[in-house]
């Protein structure tokens, strides 16, 4: 039929135009980075020793305290409080070191092994701490407690794993808070550097809290060279794939950036992406559901309209 031919021509040109300005142009403009499945295989070599050992959690418990970790980190589940409040910690280290309660489940084990031994290397920020700059990474490496250092690190990791919640109990908010919150705010869901912003009883408390946030930001800015962006909209303004591959290795997109590779597992990464989706695109489930109904309704409307037209035109042709 002639009209279908015309329709085919129109659709053809529309699709060609669409393909050129969307998929094709964006493919040219944006760097394509494939995920490496959060394998961190560049750390295989240096962590071989640790990874071949079986850790002992009870020995690890002592090492975490005696090895100095708790001098900077809290371990809430083990009732080990932080040595300082978040603002003072940021003043001392640039950021507030995260609580270690769920470290064992949120971070990749191989990554942890490297982190404990050589934080700047694991975090992929050695360019910021070159020896000639005289700068040291604020997280002090663990130099061993007198025994086999590889075994000791394996013990610590075993301990961290033993105190963590189970994978299936990690919520998107937990994963995000552990790995990202110390540097990023998420305004849309009321998250700041110390987690969810509490409800305030008085204006005074609120202002005091805000001053703390500003002070924290001063330290963070000095440490990172710039204030990390608010992540409220990144799920939409970039893409899930971008966020995933960016956290896997920020250097792959922004060479020389000061954002560390955080070393989360693939599972935690998915949860962090979901957290960001809940902020930027909170109505996505409702949209999908209603969308399906609306499409059905439109199809029915179209069929009725076709029938009506046939009816009216029967007398005309």
């Amino acid at each position: 039929m002639k009209e279908l031919k015309i329709l085919a021509v129109v659709v053809f040109f529309a699709l060609v135009t669409y393909w050129l300005v969307e998929p094709y142009a964006h493919g040219i403009m944006h760097k394509k980075v494939d995920t490496k499945s959060f394998a961190y295989s560049d750390l295989d070599e240096t962590t071989k020793g640790v990874m071949s050992k079986t850790g002992d959690a009870s020995r690890g418990a002592d090492l975490i305290v005696n090895g100095g970790c708790t001098g900077c980190h809290s371990v809430n589940v083990a009732s080990i409080p932080a040595a300082m409040d978040a603002v003072s910690a940021a003043g001392a280290f640039g950021v507030n070191p995260p609580d270690l309660s769920n470290t064992g489940v949120i971070y990749d084990a191989k990554f942890l092994a490297e982190l404990i031994k050589n934080p700047a290397h694991a975090l992929n920020v050695e360019h910021k701490f070159a020896p000639e700059s005289g700068k040291m990474h604020p997280m002090v490496p663990f130099y061993g407690a007198g025994g086999d250092i590889d075994q000791e690190i394996a013990d610590m990791i075993a301990y961290l794993k033993s105190i963590s919640v189970k994978v299936e109990d990690v919520t998107p908010a937990m994963a995000y808070e552990d790995a990202c919150a110390r540097c990023h705010t998420v305004d849309f869901v009321n998250y700041t550097y110390t987690g969810k912003i509490p409800a305030f009883k008085s204006k005074k408390d609120e202002l005091a809290f805000e001053i703390n946030v500003l002070e924290y930001e001063d330290s963070l800015k000095a440490y990172m060279g710039k204030l990390p962006p608010d992540l409220s909209m990144y799920y939409l303004s970039r893409s899930p794939h971008y966020i995933r591959t960016f956290m896997e290795d920020p250097q792959s997109y922004l060479e020389g950036t000061s954002m560390p590779r955080v070393g989360v597992t693939a599972d935690s990464a998915e949860k962090i992406v979901e957290f960001m989706a809940d902020s930027a695109d909170s109505k996505r489930h409702q949209r999908d559901e209603i969308g399906t109904y609306v499409i059905y309704f439109s199809i029915i409307f179209a069929i009725l309209a076709i029938l009506w037209k046939k009816e009216v035109w029967r007398d005309l042709k």
Partner: peptide
């Protein structure tokens, strides 16, 4: 009636 028919098909796409 033809306008409405085309509109109906268009709305599915829209």
């Amino acid at each position: 009636s033809k306008d409405v028919m085309v509109l109906g098909i268009f709305l599915v796409f829209f």
